[in-house]
Design a protein around this nucleic acid. Structure first.
Lengths: 170, 170
DNA sequence: ATTTTAAGTCAGTCTTGTTGACATTCCAAG
DNA sequence: CTTGGAATGTCAACAAGACTGACTTAAAAT
């Protein structure tokens, strides 16, 4: 506990970046940044009676068209009851289409309709705009470091989903 | 829309890190990483009938002892009513002390009690452990980049709070 | 034929956000 | 001094979105 600089038992390189104070700053930065990260889509969603839950569903259905409910469940890390409430409204509003699987008729495969794709674009454009501005401001090396830290912070299960989605897209 | 590589209008340096696909990956990484980021404290809190909101309040009261309710409000970005419910349980459980301001008797100044400090340590130790593991894994340059991107992603208001807290601690 | 799996539903609870109404305190203009 | 805002904080009621648990239906696997 309460590690100071140099108490890591290593030697040689500077370990200043591992002090409790540095870690605390990282924690706060993560907190404030995540708020900024979700702020723009949240504003759009609020004006149409949707919430962040709808955004997440739309995002991952768009990434992996034809995904099953079960698969989406494990990516989002929520219960099926919780997801189902969201999905029901999205299907009812004609943003998502649910097709019965032809191989396994128990499964429902999820797709965005044209209206769904339109909303997805609106939301991700807003989010990407902020991300792009930040990326452009700091340059490619900082972005590479950013991504490395984020990946290292994920739970192994989440990292599996993350790389899975990346590979599926090439 | 749908920027490809090199459509930024700049020239020279590689802008591959600004493609829509790269930005999309950054968005997903942020989503999954934030879940990991909060997972450990969430587990601790769940076992004691508290939630993430309690954690946030405790964290920032610890950073800025004697802060007023109003100040905490603007940092956390919630309504005073929402914060008040959380604060009431924390005060009732003896983790936070609320002292009436001597200059302005409308204000309440907030402090952690010994029990409050104990819980704060437990929570931040868990969160720092994950952060430290990630930091150690990727090295100081990546960490510097991580912090740069996070700062660039914050809303200006949030960035003000963030630097404010940093300066207050030296 | 039985069991397991995928999906959906209904009911109830909890956390945490919201708005609205209200009490207290401060301060400044009359 | 008094009175009328403005600021601060509290109480009450409600909504979104997460959770659990029990249950149904249909299809697949054994």
């Amino acid at each position: 506990m309460a590690d100071g600089p140099g108490t890591q038992g290593h030697g040689g390189e500077s370990l200043l970046y591992l002090t409790d104070e540095q870690l605390r700053q990282g924690i706060e930065a993560m907190f404030f940044a995540y708020r900024g990260f979700t702020a723009d889509p949240d504003r759009i969603l609020q004006s149409m009676d949707y919430g962040r839950a709808h955004h997440r569903a739309i995002h991952f259905i768009n990434c992996a068209p034809g995904t099953t409910v079960n698969n989406l469940l494990s990516i989002l890390g929520v219960t099926k009851q919780s997801l189902n409430r969201v999905l029901r409204t999205l299907i009812g509003d004609g943003l998502v289409e649910s097709r019965i699987g032809r191989a396994d008729k128990r499964e429902r495969h999820l797709y965005l309709t044209e209206a769904g794709k339109e909303l997805e674009h609106k939301l991700s454009d807003a989010q990407r705009a902020r991300m792009r501005a930040a990326y452009r401001q700091v340059g490619p090396e900082a972005v590479a470091g950013f991504r490395q830290v984020l990946e290292a912070m994920m739970d192994p299960d989440m990292h599996r989903h993350y790389s899975g989605l990346r590979e599926a897209r090439g």
